[in-house]
């Protein structure tokens, strides 16, 4: 079985700017994969290379074994892409648009039932005859996802699908995308909401300035950093020097310390008492991908 996505030594430059610097990545069929990274890391560039919207400066990319340049027809047939920007065709309504989109992929009337199913699942049913122009932002986002699915691609790539989307829609989108994954679709998404990746994705690649800085299962990544964070509000806002090795973040009088085990709390409390620092508030939080990310980015 060929992998859903295979990326080999991919470089991409925009003039003097090296947006991607030797990316190697294989994503197996059926995976739920997240591509993480801060703005400008190169996530969209990588997706656009997969989609054929951009061409690599060097290197090769393939979708289910089909090279995206030399076998672009097969590769694109197998790939559904939800672009980051909210783009739409102002001339047509939702259903028309979806039928056209499926038609471009060679599908005719026989596909209409699937389109209706997608419309239904994404909660677009009562907007099916509404012109794309008149949809709200959230509805446009749904229509964009529907458009990527119109030709029933086995591999679905979503570029920041939840940017600027309200909580309710986010929940609904994730439920839908999880269902697609269960039904066998390979899902690849980019996001800078780390908690999203954490709860959904089985594997994660972290991108930083055009390079993959971490690639592992979500579980392993979470195990990489000490398990818990202790968030303290201190008065006076001063951390004794003995606690500095544990410091993860400091903002005003809020100090976040990394604990590898819960028992360390006693040590922290003792040190604070000895230094005459009062604890005004205290919270114990599970470490998350954000911490992993901060750790790796700082390194």
């Amino acid at each position: 079985m060929s992998p859903a996505i295979h990326i080999e030594q991919v470089y991409k430059s925009f003039g003097p700017l090296q947006a991607l610097k030797g990316i190697n990545l294989t994503i197996e069929q059926g995976e739920f994969f997240a591509l993480l990274g801060p703005n400008g890391a190169g996530k969209s560039t990588l997706i656009n290379l997969l989609a054929g919207l951009l061409r690599p400066t060097s290197g090769r990319l393939s979708v289910m074994g089909h090279d995206v340049v030399t076998e672009y027809r097969q590769a694109r047939q197998l790939l559904g892409v939800v672009p980051q920007e909210l783009v739409f065709d102002p001339f047509f309504n939702v259903r028309e648009m979806l039928r056209f989109q499926a038609g471009y992929f060679g599908l005719g009337r026989e596909n209409d039932a699937w389109i209706d199913e997608v419309i239904e699942s994404l909660g677009l049913a009562d907007k099916a005859h509404t012109n794309m122009r008149r949809l709200s932002g959230g509805m446009k986002r749904r229509a964009l996802i529907a458009q990527a699915l119109a030709h029933r691609p086995p591999v679905l790539v979503l570029d920041e699908p939840t940017a600027g989307v309200d909580v309710e829609l986010r929940q609904m989108l994730w439920a839908f995308i999880k269902r697609l994954n269960r039904e066998g679709h390979t899902i690849i998404l980019t996001t800078h909401y780390l908690e999203e990746a954490e709860t959904l994705c089985s594997r994660v690649a972290m991108l930083k300035q055009g390079e993959i800085v971490a690639l592992d299962s979500t579980e392993n990544l979470l195990n990489r950093v000490p398990g818990k964070n202790l968030r303290l509000r201190l008065a006076p806002s001063h951390l004794p020097s003995t606690l500095h090795p544990m410091l993860r973040a400091n903002e005003g009088d809020i100090w976040t310390l990394a604990l590898s085990e819960a028992a360390q709390i006693e040590f922290v409390l003792a040190e604070l008492r000895a230094a005459d620092v009062r604890i005004e508030d205290m919270q114990l939080i599970e470490a998350d991908l954000e911490d992993v990310f901060m750790e790796i980015v700082r390194a």
Binding site: V87, F88, D89
Partner: peptide, 11 residues
């Protein structure tokens, strides 16, 4: 408008 991508994404 940017919707040219819908054409460019097709086979």
């Amino acid at each position: 408008m940017g919707n040219i991508v819908f054409l460019l994404l097709t086979p």
